[in-house]
Amino acid sequence: MGFLTNLINGISLGSVYAIIALGYTMVYGIAKMLNFAHGDVIMVGGYLCFISMTNLGLPPLVGVLLAVVGCTCLGIVVERLAYKPLRGAPSLAVLITAIGVSYFLQNSALLIWGANPKAFTSVIPLPSVSLFDGQLVISSVTIATVLVAIAVMVGLTLFTSRTKMGKAMRACSEDKGAAQLMGINVNSTISMVFAIGSGLAAIAGVLLCSAYPTLMPTTGSMPGIKAFTAAVLGGIGSIPGAALGGVLLGIIEIFAKAYLGTQFADAIVFAVLIVVLLIRPAGLLGKEIHEKV
C-alpha cells in the first residue's frame, strides 16, 4: 500500500504544481517572459484566505473566493504598473523587473503579516477517506486538490479552444503583430492572461497551504521554482505540457523522498529536468522551432 499512498500523494502534489505551472506557461506563451513573481502570488493567495478565515471568521469557501479575487486584481495591477511599461524591452529587463516584484511582494508580506509562520487550517473540513480496511487513507485535501486540478485543466482547455477571448490569447501567443492587425486588443489580452494566471495561483496557494499548513512570506518561492521547472519539463508555452510536467514532477518528488531519502529529493527533481531537456530540448510536449536563415 505504501506504493499506492506515495503515488496518490505524488499526484496530489503534482496537481498543485500543475496549477501553478499553468500560470507560468500561459504568461510565457503570450508575453515571452519568465514571471518570477508568480510564486509570490501563491503566497499572497494563501495569506488572503488565511486572514479571511481566521481574522474575519468567514467560511472557507468565501475565503477561497476572496483569495482568488484578490490575486486576480493583484495580477492585473502588477502587470499594469510593472510589466506594461516594458513591452518591447529586452527580456532580461522584464525578468529583473519580475524579480523586483517578487522582492516587493515578499517584503510587503513580511511587513504586514510578520515573519512568524502561520498555522493554516485546511479549507476542506471533511474527514479522510479510508479504503481497504484502513490500509489506504486518503485525506480530503488530496482528493479535492486532484479534482480541482482536473476541473481547472478542463475549464482552461475549453476556454482557450472555444471562447473568443481564448482564441485571441492563442493568436497573440503565435504572432502579436498579426493578431493586432486582425483587430485583437493585445494589451487587454495580456492583462487577461495575467489575471487568469494569478487567480489560478491563488487556488494553488490555498490548496498548497491546506496540504502543508505553514504559511510564511517565503512559502511561495520553492513551489514557484518547482512549478516553473514543471512548466519547462512539459514544454513551456504548452497548456497540456504544464499539466503533464506538474504531475510528473510531483510524483518524482514524492517517490524520491520515499525511496531515496528526503535530502536528495530536490537534486533528483532538477536532475530529471536536465536529462529530459538534453533528450528533448523543447520539453516533453513543446514544439521545437527550427531557426531559418
Binding site: 511599461p85 516594458l86 518591447g88 529587463a93 529583473i96 523587473t97 523586483g100 522582492y103 516587493f104
Partner: peptide
C-alpha cells in the same frame, strides 16, 4: 525592490 523596479522601467521604457 521599488528602486529596482523603477530603475528597470525608467531605463527601458521607450
Amino acid at each position: 525592490a521599488i528602486v529596482l523596479i523603477l530603475v528597470m522601467i525608467l531605463s527601458n521604457n521607450a
